[in-house]
Amino acid sequence: MYTAAAALYPDALASSVTLPMEILQAASQMASVGERGRAQARFLLTAPDTTPLRLASGIQLSPDIAFDQLPPLDLLILPAIWRNPLPTLKGASRWLAQLAAIAGQGTRICSVGTASCLLAEAGLLDGRPATTHWNYFDRFARRYPRVQLKTRHLITQSDNIYCVGSVNSIADLMVHIVEGWFGTRVARAVEQQFSPEIRRSFRAAAYQDSTRSSHHDETVIQAQQYLQDNLASGGRLEDLARQLDISPRTLSRRFRIATGYSTQQYLNSLRLATARDLLRRSNLSIAEICWQLGLQDVSYFARLFRQHHGVSPMRYREAARGKLFDPVAGAGRGRRP
């Protein structure tokens, strides 16, 4: 079972707590279908103590557990801060040191909006890329000159440290996390339910620090970048190996060790992510999307898309454009409230 938590403080925006909570709860329920109904994730609220906390919006939340009692976490969310973050930073001084300890355990920590200031205060963003709410770009840059502020990206990632610039972007990140935990079908179903608007995928929206990749094979990093830049022509292992001056057999072995995928599987995942964006954002025909992805066979593309997402490309486009929810196979259909 995966364990996620959200930190609470008086000026936290409730929506940046409840949206990730609901997305993860929905994913857990969908994933539990194949696990005899057993919950696959839990979401905790945490604060310095368990005294009920009334947020600036007037909503009262009750922490499940104190910071110093937290179990090992897979994800910790630092909710967006309403208006000036400085009062929150001052109030957080007694528990900021725990963030470094939690990060050191390998926990993914994600800040929303100006909660990136909490990560910066804890020293977790020194020398790393980060983003924050657009209205605080200048103040953030002045206060934290050692942070590599990325003003053109809504999401940044460096190792296990994530920053998203707004409450809306946390949905994109949560879908990305759900996909890693529960697979593509669950992620796409959650995406249709919670964020079917025309949006960008995590891969398209995020700035990822390749120097702090989850693996450190520079040749494989170059291969990943080449595939990203050459979706329409980068499919042959032999051609990729020639670009990197390495034998196809060695590249294949190292790529799988580093990423867990073959080069073709990785390329397909890039193509499918791009296809989803084009189906949402453009009026290109299915055949034209295939051409942009370097695929000549429309029926093969349709089979590949259905295999990974459970619906045809056209049905996916209709659902995204019409804000419909297509649950995983076997469940009924419903319209988003």
Results as ranks from 00 to 15, higher is better:
residue 245 D to L: 10
residue 246 I to K: 08
residue 207 Y to W: 12
residue 227 L to C: 15
residue 220 V to F: 12
residue 207 Y to N: 01
residue 236 R to N: 10
residue 215 H to T: 06
residue 217 D to S: 14
residue 220 V to M: 11
residue 225 Q to H: 12
residue 214 S to C: 13
residue 208 Q to A: 12
residue 223 A to F: 13
residue 246 I to N: 01
residue 217 D to T: 06
residue 224 Q to P: 02
residue 226 Y to G: 04
residue 208 Q to E: 11
residue 232 A to V: 13
residue 234 G to W: 06
residue 228 Q to W: 04
residue 222 Q to H: 13
residue 234 G to I: 14
residue 246 I to R: 05
residue 233 S to C: 14
residue 216 H to I: 14
residue 239 D to S: 12
residue 226 Y to V: 13
residue 247 S to P: 03
residue 237 L to G: 07
residue 245 D to V: 11
residue 228 Q to N: 08
residue 214 S to D: 07
residue 247 S to G: 08
residue 211 T to K: 01
residue 226 Y to R: 09
residue 232 A to I: 05
residue 245 D to E: 09
residue 227 L to A: 12
residue 221 I to F: 06
residue 210 S to G: 04
residue 226 Y to D: 09
residue 232 A to F: 14
residue 240 L to H: 03
residue 220 V to N: 02
residue 211 T to G: 01
residue 229 D to F: 06
residue 244 L to T: 01
residue 243 Q to D: 02
residue 230 N to R: 06
residue 236 R to H: 08
residue 221 I to L: 15
residue 242 R to H: 05
residue 244 L to W: 05
residue 227 L to E: 04
residue 234 G to H: 02
residue 213 S to H: 07
residue 219 T to H: 03
residue 209 D to T: 09
residue 231 L to R: 04
residue 234 G to M: 11
residue 226 Y to A: 15
residue 208 Q to R: 14
residue 242 R to G: 01
residue 243 Q to Y: 02
residue 213 S to T: 02
residue 219 T to P: 00
residue 215 H to F: 15
residue 210 S to A: 15
residue 243 Q to I: 06
residue 210 S to N: 04
residue 215 H to P: 05
residue 238 E to Y: 05
residue 225 Q to S: 12
residue 228 Q to E: 10
residue 218 E to S: 12
residue 242 R to K: 09
residue 207 Y to M: 05
residue 234 G to D: 05
residue 218 E to W: 07
residue 214 S to A: 14
residue 246 I to A: 05
residue 226 Y to C: 13
residue 236 R to Y: 10
residue 240 L to I: 14
residue 237 L to Q: 03
residue 211 T to N: 01
residue 242 R to Q: 09
residue 213 S to W: 12
residue 245 D to M: 03
residue 234 G to Y: 06
residue 207 Y to S: 00
residue 214 S to Q: 09
residue 229 D to Q: 11
residue 212 R to M: 09
residue 230 N to E: 01
residue 225 Q to I: 15
residue 230 N to C: 12
residue 234 G to L: 14
residue 226 Y to L: 15
residue 244 L to Q: 00
residue 241 A to S: 05
residue 222 Q to I: 01
residue 219 T to R: 11
residue 240 L to N: 01
residue 208 Q to N: 04
residue 230 N to D: 02
residue 210 S to D: 07
residue 231 L to A: 06
residue 214 S to M: 13
residue 213 S to G: 14
residue 234 G to A: 11
residue 219 T to N: 03
residue 211 T to W: 00
residue 212 R to H: 07
residue 244 L to I: 02
residue 214 S to H: 09
residue 231 L to F: 10
residue 207 Y to D: 00
residue 244 L to K: 01
residue 216 H to V: 13
residue 237 L to F: 10
residue 245 D to C: 03
residue 221 I to C: 13
residue 218 E to P: 00
residue 207 Y to R: 00
residue 229 D to K: 07
residue 241 A to M: 01
residue 238 E to A: 15
residue 224 Q to H: 06
residue 215 H to Y: 15
residue 208 Q to W: 02
residue 240 L to P: 08
residue 210 S to Y: 09
residue 242 R to C: 08
residue 218 E to D: 10
residue 236 R to Q: 11
residue 214 S to T: 12
residue 229 D to T: 04
residue 244 L to A: 06
residue 225 Q to T: 13
residue 216 H to Y: 06
residue 240 L to R: 01
residue 218 E to K: 07
residue 234 G to T: 10
residue 218 E to Q: 10
residue 215 H to S: 08
